[in-house]
Design a binder for these strands. Sequence first.
DNA 1: TCTCTTGCCGATACAGTGTATTGAGCGATA
DNA 2: TATCGCTCAATACACTGTATCGGCAAGAGA
Lengths: 231, 231
Amino acid sequence: MSNEPVWDRPEPPGKPSPTPLTRELIVNAAIRLADGGGLDDVSFRKVAAALNAGPMRLYGYVETKDELLDLMVDEVYGEITPPPAKADWRYGLKHVAHEIRNAAKRHEWFIDLLGGRPHQGPHSLTHIESTLATVRLADIDQVLGVVSAVMAYVFGAVRSEITELRAERATGLTEEQWQRASGPYMARMLATGRFPLLGRVMHESTDRDHAEVFGTGLDYVLDGIAVRHGL
Amino acid sequence: MSNEPVWDRPEPPGKPSPTPLTRELIVNAAIRLADGGGLDDVSFRKVAAALNAGPMRLYGYVETKDELLDLMVDEVYGEITPPPAKADWRYGLKHVAHEIRNAAKRHEWFIDLLGGRPHQGPHSLTHIESTLATVRLADIDQVLGVVSAVMAYVFGAVRSEITELRAERATGLTEEQWQRASGPYMARMLATGRFPLLGRVMHESTDRDHAEVFGTGLDYVLDGIAVRHGL
DNA sequence: TCTCTTGCCGATACAGTGTATTGAGCGATA
DNA sequence: TATCGCTCAATACACTGTATCGGCAAGAGA
């Protein structure tokens, strides 16, 4: 249970222990592990081992694994630079969107954690605040609606991009190899003739730059906002 | 590893065993469990127990747990009714969007599985095909771009909605109770004065109907598509 | 009808997980 | 110096996905 947030719970003060250890040290170690081998490599035992400590030692600094994951997410939010204070709403939101995408490129696990639970860490909060500030509409409900819509698109788009990237990596990088792995099955399916458009997508589609695709989709959302609110 | 998809791998033929057991039975049992207690309740042991079988028995029908999850996702895709064949593109995409949202309302775990791995099941494929078919643009790249953008928004929006719903449920339904749980911490944060807009959101914001909020965001995306492609 | 073989099912086993509990050692205080 | 309290590590527990193995039961061949 323990829904009481912990972002400002104090750490134990001085630790003349084997290695001094901080919550920050723990989070950084966890992030390094996750960057290297994915979220599966983030276990209390492995994180502790990376810090020359026993697993149970961590519980002095972090109450539960979910809390550790929250801390990791907030840390990444801290890496995200806010849009220039007086930026145009459109430029500002674009900035935020690409900033999140870049963060997810650096830390692929980030996107897996993003939608899953509420983010109330200090970095998350300042991030939301600065994003809301970009949209200068009078009605706060409209501001929230606009930001939520953009974020929804960003989360969804980044997630699917990372997923695709992982899938490519898993089957071995090249389209060639994919043909050999999922190919036979997909070939059979396409041969049924029930999926003509999917067939066209797979055969005719030119693989465009991912960032560009992301930007185009984002422009749909921003255009829609512009027309609806006359901006 | 085993990237070879399994959607049409044949089942073992006759089973006059204690209970006959089918892949479909297994998937349905898993879905029932997940509907009841979330994805955490989907373990081979629990699913097998629900079918009066030993855990290892399932491996005759399902190669791995990930495969079981894929099958569950595809089953839910099967519940989604496609848009009317000759529907207007806008109406068609709206239909698909709400259909997915409704499915996620029935099966909250669905959205957790959605972005995470590629969906190549038969129901998933026909779903994608019929969605692509609603967008009648000549350039297949544009068709894909439009559908991807809409789906990205839908996934992101539904995910955050379900997440919020779960959070409410966890802290005990009422705003009142939330105030007592996360309240003190958030109150402290807001009291710093560093998050004026967030404060306004929490205090002034009227809690609108979720479906309506979802629809408004969706309209942003659709409007943007309309203006970009002159539809 | 009896035997052999084949294939499936369940029990057991293993490595891993998050975390509760317990015991030992050490630093600070009385 | 003796005691208290705190911290860290070891152990333990329940649980996960899955590999392996042993037995049983049904079908095939003589």
